[in-house]
Design a protein around this nucleic acid. Structure first.
Lengths: 157, 157
DNA sequence: CAATAATGACACCTTAGTTGTCATGAAGGA
DNA sequence: TCCTTCATGACAACTAAGGTGTCATTATTG
């Protein structure tokens, strides 16, 4: 807490942040449901989608890495990856850094599938943009990232 | 899509918004888990907490109203309310507008419980504020509200 | 080389949240 | 006024996300 004048640590800001969290819940649920709706198209569960999205924008990762990154338990991610592997969407390649835990990589089929999903999503979000400005969205991302980082202390597994 | 100058509807903004959603998931889960951690203190489930919070800042509401407001099914909210009522945290009072669906109101005990929770939460969030500015958080709230409103089309029940 | 830590796998479980259904009573129109 | 329709509360069954506990195996490290 970096107060320079001895004042409390932004008490009213705490209230505003509480508002943010009050929005995150419903937003998560609504988005979740919306995703679920056209999920049958590709037949991907929400969990599989999440790991594929991660691999898509972060490149190959190990299972434990993905768990930590998404605040999910190692075992849960593993299950999703196993499922995805069974469908030929991901494959494991030797990890030069750790012999035991292999890197998970998208297959071509997986890339196609998740790209299709992402494109459809982007189309929807394009409509959602409305009169939002780039600056506002950037600020939003910054705030959410900050909060996420702050909550990192909550360990899983 | 309402473009006035023939340009596409903010395509790059759609990508940024996708980033927002990619943050909402982990953030929701981490916050959820954090809440769950000290939940045993009051013995309130996440669902009960949610309805109490709603009643606290919105005043008395009917069950279906709450469901719509939080993107939850009517039946689920009902269960949470029944649970809360069994613990003496809420009570139903006659609704002048609709004879059939009564208004749900916090009892004094309920108000005390949810206020304690909110206070504890605010203390934590005060630490989370860090170097975030009021303007940034305000922008974040605006963006999230906007997205939430946009997704309102996803109907439940 | 021994001890510790990390990984994959499997089983079980919790619980958020939905859906389906039914009876009842309120609203509203003919 | 009556009939139809809609909304509500209640209950049951179900789905799926996600966690936890445990074990064997294999690295990694001191």
């Amino acid at each position: 807490m970096s107060e320079t004048d001895g004042g409390p640590a932004a008490p009213e800001l705490a209230d505003r942040l509480a508002e943010v969290f009050d929005l995150v819940g419903p937003l998560y649920r609504r988005a979740y449901r919306k995703v679920e709706l056209d999920s049958p198209i590709e037949g991907l569960s929400v969990g599989v989608r999440a790991v594929l999205t991660m691999l898509r924008e972060h490149g190959p990762m190990t299972v434990p890495q993905m768990g930590r990154a998404q605040a999910l338990s190692r075992q849960f991610v593993q299950r999703m990856i196993n499922d995805a592997a069974a469908r030929g969407l991901v494959e494991s390649v030797p990890n030069p850094a750790h012999k035991r835990s292999s890197l998970i990589r998208l297959t071509e089929q997986g890339r196609i599938a998740i790209t299709a999903v992402a494109d459809r999503e982007r189309a929807v979000l394009g409509q959602a943009a409305g009169d939002l400005t780039e600056a506002e969205v950037a600020a939003c991302i910054r705030v959410l990232s900050h909060l996420l980082h702050f909550l990192d202390h909550v360990e899983v597994d």
